[in-house]
Amino acid sequence: MRETLCEISLKQRAIRIEDPWMDTKEFRELLKIHFKPRMNELGFKGSNHHFVKVTDNHFIYMFVIQANKYGGSCVMEMGATLDFLVTEKKQSEITVYDCDFRKRLRARPSLVQKIFKNTQEKWHENVENEEDAINTIHDMLNLVNGQLMGYYSQFSTFPNSITDITLDEIISGSRRLYDLGSPPKLRLALLIAKTHYYIGNLEQSDKIASWGLKNIGNATGLINDFRKLIQEE
């Protein structure tokens, strides 16, 4: 009798549970030794898997090594936010998940992968022994060295890195917004409107906030935020 898809899935899960993956705690100890020093060199402070860099131009850069909830692997995620947008939290409490701009740090697919459309994201495996785990960490560091600061360089100038994004670009989208890892249109509009408001450019803040309010759709939780930015006549 053939096995059902459900039975096969359960069997594969059972095999996965029995796999000798390195414990996440052990892997993080290796990250502390082999990964954390490089992040410190780049100006980031933090633990063995969560790092933050506070700049002198309002931007806060966040970086996290996110463990797979099933164990055995992890991914790296970058984020950026503005200090005046996170006033309800201490800077030491901010995580990538508080950032409006977020992007995974991942290996670029090879030509062969593109041809066969095999571009599924590859998680970094903790593997079963220390030597292989260190090799995995070196692969992760190669991605950091090749991509990390290039991503954050997009936020190097305040306020232009934000205010140069026009309403037309918000509406139509662009490669730049994709590279920034920008949020959905309404949240992006709110962020840009708040930035214009912060620097005293009330006319632009009003214009973008008014557009957001008119196109609010199901995002009713943002109504009050937009209204606070619209100037009374």
Rank of each mutant, 00 (worst) to 15 (best):
H124E: 08
E130K: 13
V86L: 10
I137S: 00
K122F: 04
S92H: 12
E77Y: 06
D132A: 14
K114L: 15
H138G: 03
N129M: 07
A133T: 02
Q113K: 14
T136C: 08
D132W: 08
K114V: 10
M78C: 09
K117M: 08
T119L: 06
D139H: 14
R102G: 03
I137C: 04
S92E: 15
Q120I: 12
E128H: 13
V96W: 07
R104M: 13
D98L: 03
H124A: 11
T119W: 07
E88L: 05
K117Y: 04
I94V: 15
D132G: 04
Y97C: 01
G72C: 08
N129G: 03
H138P: 06
K122C: 01
A133C: 01
V86D: 04
E77W: 09
H124D: 09
Q91H: 12
I115L: 15
K89H: 10
T136Q: 00
C74L: 09
L82M: 10
E77N: 09
P109E: 04
R102Y: 06
Q91Y: 11
L141M: 04
F84S: 00
W123Y: 13
A133N: 02
E77M: 11
E88A: 11
E130I: 11
I134T: 05
Y97G: 00
R102S: 01
D132M: 10
E128N: 14
I137F: 00
F116S: 14
